[in-house]
Design a protein around this nucleic acid. Structure first.
Lengths: 199, 199
DNA sequence: TTTACTGGTTAACACTGTTAACTAACCCAA
DNA sequence: TTGGGTTAGTTAACAGTGTTAACCAGTAAA
């Protein structure tokens, strides 16, 4: 196909495209290779096996997601602002680059079980950032949670749940996607904030 | 294997077992058949194809989950009680029968994309129940949400997110599972309740 | 000019879902 | 009692899968 960009990148690119377009079950080494115009076994020059290829794909996406979140968090000042920036960063990434976000969870259960733990830890950069932000919020008495680490994990989980329902089109057709998202995220966020005024 | 129970049930049982034990990627028609002691093609006497088999598995689990939740909800009185009963019913089912709960989401993205929409609607029985409960709570001024239907969906999504993080062992080892669950569920619930007293 | 390495190739193996054609056992009517 | 039809399964085969082993052309260095 393209002579310029290295084969390894072409493989990753094509895989991601395939995965997102045709779904995970119809992603085969031979098809990837075919699309690129190369023999199937060439892939094994760059990846140990299909698992390794998928893991690399995940890793890439996780990295990009992390960067996106960190970037969003940077330009915020004050814990509440940063708190919201992180969450919105997550959601925005999921919807702006669904083909990358989806990879992280699409492959999940099967390949993920074999995903090396130490690589998974990479995703924790954002986790630490969120924890730090929460702790900061607690210190300034604007966020109220018992265990920041638990809360942070819970937030990721909830966010993923909400986002994936929308992305996988499992949402009731009577419900507006944007509204659902806004409302859900809002609920997640507000639950952790110290309420300012109560009527 | 067993001569008494009908083959169809044996297939489902064995499949579920396999799925939960060995993971989804190593679930093959031939292996299932082998385990039962029957030829692989016999499965096609009862299921159109592998997809159909998986869908049936999902359907069964969804039905059981629904029943469990409805049962839990029945013995509650008052909207708040029922609200909590539903949520706890969900979580309890997930942890008491993980091999059934997991099926619902394990197979997900790939087979789910082809899962017939009308069957999916079956799962909505619980959804309607939850919506009704929320509306009741609103009427009695103990629950406060803008859009009950949106909130209900959001709750499922959040619950699933939280539960699956634990089930898939993606939880940081420093965090206690039970505590995480309690805290997370608690946060989800409390977010919707009208706060009684604030210091 | 040989040697070793780089970046690929083809052929083959064991396994997958699925279909078509066959078979053995039973039930029931002639 | 024979024969036909249905039921519940079988075997053989096809196309496609991940993966390995063996091979090969070109380049760079000795």
């Amino acid at each position: 196909m393209n002579e310029e960009i290295p084969l390894r990148d072409q493989i990753l690119e094509t895989s991601r495209h395939f995965l997102f377009e045709k779904g995970h079950s119809s992603l085969s080494m031979r098809k990837i290779a075919n699309k690129i115009g190369v023999s199937a076994t060439s892939i094994y020059l760059y990846f140990d096996n299909k698992d390794h290829l998928l893991h690399t794909l995940i890793e890439e996406s996780v990295e990009e997601l992390s960067v996106a979140i960190e970037l969003a968090a940077e330009e915020a000042n004050g814990p509440i602002d940063r708190f919201e920036a992180i969450i919105n960063g997550y959601v925005d990434f999921a919807f702006n680059k669904p083909e990358k976000y989806q990879v992280i969870y699409m492959v999940r259960s099967e390949a993920m079980a074999r995903y090396p733990k130490e690589k998974f830890r990479k995703a924790r950069r954002c986790y630490e950032l969120l924890v730090k932000t929460i702790q900061e919020g607690i210190a300034k008495r604007v966020i109220k949670v018992e265990k920041p680490m638990v809360a942070a994990y819970s937030i990721w989980a909830q966010l993923h749940g909400v986002v994936s329902v929308v992305l996988n089109q499992r949402l009731d057709s009577r419900i507006d996607r944007k509204e659902f998202l806004k409302e859900s995220v809002n609920h997640i966020v507000e639950g952790f904030l110290v309420r300012t005024t109560v009527s």
